[in-house]
């Protein structure tokens, strides 16, 4: 059984759980064929692996299609407001170290209206697991371009094509001092669960970008990464300690200028992926290999997984230290302060 150091303070389940335990009685209302179904099923069947009490698990979401997720998880949950889930979850995680707190968000929720909260949660390294469902479109508002849509995207709000350059969410996360950054795909349950496992093990904030197909407004956005005919050449599967290979006959090498590039196997030596590298620069360079429009050469897997003190643990430690140094607070003494006078009857 996998060990989850990040869940050290979370009470253990009494017995084995199953995916069924994590399903609610609520009818799932995503569009038929939505990638969210696959993610939900993968998460529900993964959760028992954590071996923690269901009641000590909380899913917090913002607004958007993905943010309906908590309603379908038989844990504690909050469907909050647009973009604010990381902030709300921070308050919860920082005050309750006995909980496993998950944030479910989307590309609009996390990167547009909630961009500020996302980057600050990452730099603080609060014990949160953030699942960012990226479908490169606004689904719930019926099809406007999102901050991850490719330039020139024709949508209802951009009939002549969108003008703004997209975010690469993983580049952004690395720039925001994230300690855990990973990417996976809705349709690959085995890979998705392996990434969730690594995220759950990580102490601090984990950002997991999940490429998720919106079959109504942006169908096939990730087809190149899924089609048997193209995926092997388009995907770069990262494994810690393994050489970074591309398809059957290419690999990633470091050029003389220090940049990463894709070369035939006959040229140079493949870099070996080190998710635990102290510096983020190689991970960042890996995120830049993908073509922003076509997603060709998209790395998936755990790009970065490093140790840094966790915000909630540090906060708890300050409280403990204050009590050790000053003693448990005495309200009467506090109110009186150092300068009082008495009026006699």
């Amino acid at each position: 059984m996998t060990d989850f150091p990040a869940l050290r303070l979370v009470p253990k389940a009494d017995g084995p759980q199953s995916a069924k335990d994590f399903k609610t009685d609520q009818e799932v209302r995503w569009c038929p064929g939505c990638g969210d179904y696959a993610i939900l099923a993968a998460v529900q069947s993964f959760m028992p692996e954590l071996g923690i009490r269901r009641e000590n698990t909380v899913f917090v979401s913002g607004i958007g299609c993905s943010s309906r997720f908590p309603y379908y998880m038989n844990t504690y949950g909050m469907h909050s407001i647009h973009g604010r889930a990381p902030a709300i979850a921070t308050g919860l995680a920082a005050s309750r170290p006995d909980l496993s707190v998950w944030v479910v968000t989307g590309d609009g929720d996390a990167l547009s209206i909630g961009g500020n909260h996302l980057i600050h949660a990452l730099r603080r390294n609060v014990n949160l697991k953030i699942l960012l469902f990226n479908n490169r479109i606004y689904g719930l508002t019926k099809g406007q371009y999102s901050p991850t849509s490719e330039v020139g995207k024709i949508t209802k709000s951009t009939p002549m094509g969108s003008l703004d350059a997209p975010f690469n969410p993983l580049s952004l996360a690395l720039g925001a001092e994230a300690t855990f950054v990973a990417r996976t795909i809705d349709s690959d349950r085995q890979h998705l669960q392996s990434v969730l496992r690594a995220a759950a093990r990580h102490e601090g904030t984990a950002l997991v970008e999940i490429y998720q197909n919106c079959n109504i407004f942006n169908d096939g956005a990730f087809e190149i990464l899924k089609e048997p005919g193209t995926r092997d050449e388009a995907l770069i599967r990262l494994e810690h300690g393994q050489p970074v290979l591309v398809g059957a006959d290419r690999h990633v090498v470091r050029g003389a200028d220090g940049e990463l590039r894709i070369a035939p196997r006959s040229e140079g030596t493949a870099i070996v992926h080190d998710a635990h590298a102290a510096g983020p620069s190689t991970a960042f360079a890996l995120t830049r290999l993908a073509d922003a429009d076509t997603l060709h050469h998209t790395p998936i897997g755990v790009l970065r997984d490093v140790d840094r003190p966790v915000y909630d643990a540090l906060m708890a430690e300050q409280l403990t230290r204050a009590e050790q140094q000053q003693g448990r607070g005495d309200l009467a003494a506090l109110l009186a302060g150092s300068s009082t006078w008495t009026v006699d009857a």
Partner: peptide, 23 residues
């Protein structure tokens, strides 16, 4: 802090109240 009081200086006003509501 020795009264168990946690204070969180948030990134903005919205996160301040959001964290308080989460707590």
């Amino acid at each position: 802090k020795n009264f168990g009081v946690r204070t969180f200086q948030a990134e903005d006003e919205i996160a301040g109240i959001g964290a308080a509501l989460g707590a």
